[in-house]
């Protein structure tokens, strides 16, 4: 189940945004302008089932997303979606994955505390014996130049 974000979890001033996800779920998210930089040398790793529900996260994921592990396991991966990310970017992601191909791109993620962090993300379908078993996503520290380019591009997309 996806719950609305709570002002009690926030740090700093926030704005409210109503996000509608591809499965019809609607969630009120609270967003601040506080950025948490991705630490050097780390990888954020997660796995989902074929429906996009989280089955595994590493410690870096927990620290950067700001959720305890028990809230992450079983939750849809889209709880990290930041309202500044255009739906078109995620459509490209899913169109690529449905063809059993690897996708990569620059992503602004939403933390539980309303802040955000930029990553260079790669998502790969986990194919075992010809069957799709889920997805692995690995995120790493992005170049600031690429982040600025992505910010400009995403502002032009819906």
């Amino acid at each position: 189940m996806v719950v609305d974000m709570s002002p009690d979890d926030l740090i700093g001033e926030h704005r409210e945004v109503l996000l509608k996800y591809h499965d019809g779920t609607v969630r009120q998210v609270l967003v601040t302008d506080v950025e948490t930089p991705m630490p050097d040398g780390r990888l954020i790793v997660s796995r989902t089932d074929p429906q996009g529900l989280i089955t595994h996260v590493n410690q870096s994921f927990i620290e950067m997303a700001g959720y305890p592990e028990e809230e992450l396991i079983g939750a849809p991966h889209y709880i990290l979606r930041h309202p500044d990310m255009p739906a078109a970017a995620f459509k490209m992601l899913w169109d690529t994955l449905k063809e059993n191909k690897k996708w990569h791109g620059y992503v602004k993620n939403l933390r539980k505390d309303g802040g955000y962090y930029w990553v260079y993300a790669t998502v790969i379908p986990n194919i075992r014996g010809g069957q799709l078993m889920g997805y692995t996503s690995v995120r790493r520290k992005p170049s600031r130049t690429k982040v600025r380019e992505a910010e400009e591009l995403y502002r032009t997309l819906s």
Binding site: H104, I124, N126, T136, S137, V138, R140
Partner: peptide
């Protein structure tokens, strides 16, 4: 799979 994600 993880190594594959790191290759590009």
């Amino acid at each position: 799979d993880l190594m594959d994600t790191l290759e590009d």
